[in-house]
């Protein structure tokens, strides 16, 4: 059964995310081809793969920012549709871009996004997420003055504003120093009951964080690994095999 084709039974709890036969093409180039998988509620899924594998395109489709050429993406049992934006209430997104305005302060940016998401008591919620990401003392500063790490924290604060059930993170560790990574890990630890999908090139950290991994290459799923059962070393070997590169190159590329 494809998502959105038939109603889900009253007793059945739909998966947090259901990707059914999804393809995304740009002209003759196919970025993602016939992908199907589900993500259970409360689990953390890692999307691994080399540059240009289609991870970001896939994540953008999960966020509703890119429309699949074929297939459906469902969140909480509801297929993402262009004319129905209510599903976005349950999704928080962090991409390479901060999605904030350099001309407004961090607090003003959050207040603006809180308003768009219909957050109750936006002032209190903004202070709360600023504290969560460790930016309370920089709330009155503009993101243009922030370092890369601080900008990423603000981006995370924006994504957490509406208390989403599903968090999508594109390369969350890239460009972060050790302290910022530790802070991010603390935030994600507090996200235990939520569903997280992240893309990363950091195999070690990704394996530690995720309960399941999909290895994507040239727009296809090359491996689907239960990380609770398979160890880090075993996954690295699977990863190498899936993307078809020699060990030394892989080790260099993924670290």
């Amino acid at each position: 059964m494809k998502s959105g084709d038939e109603p889900i039974g009253a007793d059945a709890v739909p998966p947090a995310i259901d990707v059914a036969d999804v393809t995304k093409s740009y002209g003759h180039f196919t970025a993602v081809e016939q992908l199907s998988f589900t993500v259970e509620r409360g689990s953390t899924l890692g999307l691994f793969g080399p540059n240009g594998a289609g991870k970001t395109t896939l994540l953008r489709m999960l966020a509703g920012l890119t429309r699949p050429t074929e297939g459906t993406v469902s969140v909480d049992g509801v297929a993402l549709a262009p004319d129905d934006h209510t599903t976005y209430r349950t999704v928080g997104v962090v991409t390479h871009e901060t999605m904030v305005y350099d001309e407004l302060t961090a607090r003003e940016n959050l207040r603006f996004h809180a308003g768009l998401h219909g957050v109750d008591d936006p002032a209190a919620r903004c202070e709360s997420v600023l504290e969560t990401v460790g930016l309370s003392h920089r709330g009155s500063d503009r993101p243009g003055e922030f370092s890369h790490g601080l900008r990423k924290r603000l981006s995370l604060a924006r994504a957490l504003l509406h208390d989403p059930q599903v968090l999508l993170l594109d390369e969350p560790y890239t460009g972060l120093d050790q302290r910022s990574v530790a802070d991010l890990e603390t935030v994600l630890d507090g996200f235990d009951d939520r569903t997280v999908v992240l893309t990363t090139h950091d195999l070690e950290r990704g394996v530690e964080r995720c309960s399941r991994a999909l290895v994507v290459d040239r727009g296809r799923i090359e491996a689907d690994v239960d990380l609770d059962e398979s160890g880090a070393a075993s996954f690295e070997s699977t990863y190498r095999q899936a993307i078809g590169v020699d060990e030394p190159e892989t080790s260099e590329a993924v670290r």
């Binding site: 966020a63 209510t86 901060t98």
Partner: peptide
């Protein structure tokens, strides 16, 4: 203004009519 920092994407992922 909306193109910088992917700000337009920030608007598009909000649960509002585009």
């Amino acid at each position: 203004l909306e193109d910088r920092n992917g700000a337009l994407d920030g608007l598009l992922i909000a649960p509002i009519d585009r």
